[in-house]
Amino acid sequence: MRETATERWTRRIVLTLLAGFVLVPLYVMVSSAIKPLQDVQAAFTWWPRRPTLQAFVDMWSTVPLGRYLINSLLVASVAAIFSVAVAIFAAYAVSRYRFRGRQVFSVTVLSTQMFPGILFLLPLFLIYVNLGNATGIALYASRTGLIITYLTFSLPFSIWMLVGYFDSIPRGLDEAAQVDGAGPLRTLFQVVLPAAVPGVVAVTVYAFMTAWGEVLFASVLTNENSRTLAVGLQGYSTQFNVYWNQVMAASLVVSVPVVAGFLALQRYFVAGLTAGAVK
């Protein structure tokens, strides 16, 4: 099945255009981050004439970026760890047991993912505020509230993907372990999980990315102390000035780790999606 010359050239042209579309904003993010402030406030230039790393220094003092970063790191990591832990147990149950309500659970969990966030934002906001007033449990404007909220956001997709991974692990392994006297939990931890490590890692990264990038709930459920990067980065545009070079520098710093993590693990995502799509 040989490729004709027309096909080859169409492929090259189309892929080049697509690559350009994707690359331009990425390039601007990098090239503007190393421009001095005067240059990003003047007419656009493709090439940074006076490259400087000043923006990477200044960005920490223009807004409390360090605090936002720590908040985001804390919220996203804790939410990711708990979300994956919860998802592992749920996925194990769905994959290995036939029980009443199994189908209902799967459908309900996936469909909550599809509901408009705004629908439960307003009540959740009121619930958190009132819970705080009534019992002193501070969920509103606290990182705890944000963690609990975010860990449910990645849960449905994590469960779905892990079920696909667990299903692909032969049951013979479980049964062999059970013959050896292992209980269900030991089977999970000693047989199923070790075989599903790529899936678990991929799901962890996904959960982290979800919490790291969330904007809507962060904009309502946080205050100055618990603010995350998603809202905090807007602080670079003040009434008088937009520090575009610093915005781009900060964007770069907060993007690189997640993009690198995702790209390093992308084939496990594809594998997970394939496993899920087969069903």
Partner: peptide
């Protein structure tokens, strides 16, 4: 390389991607 490049906009945190477009 292309595959990784094409996936990058999905992996970027939404606010950094969109804020860059605001600048563009």
């Amino acid at each position: 390389v292309l595959r990784a490049l094409f996936l990058t906009p999905y992996a970027l945190p939404v606010y950094t991607a969109v804020i860059t477009w605001t600048f563009l």
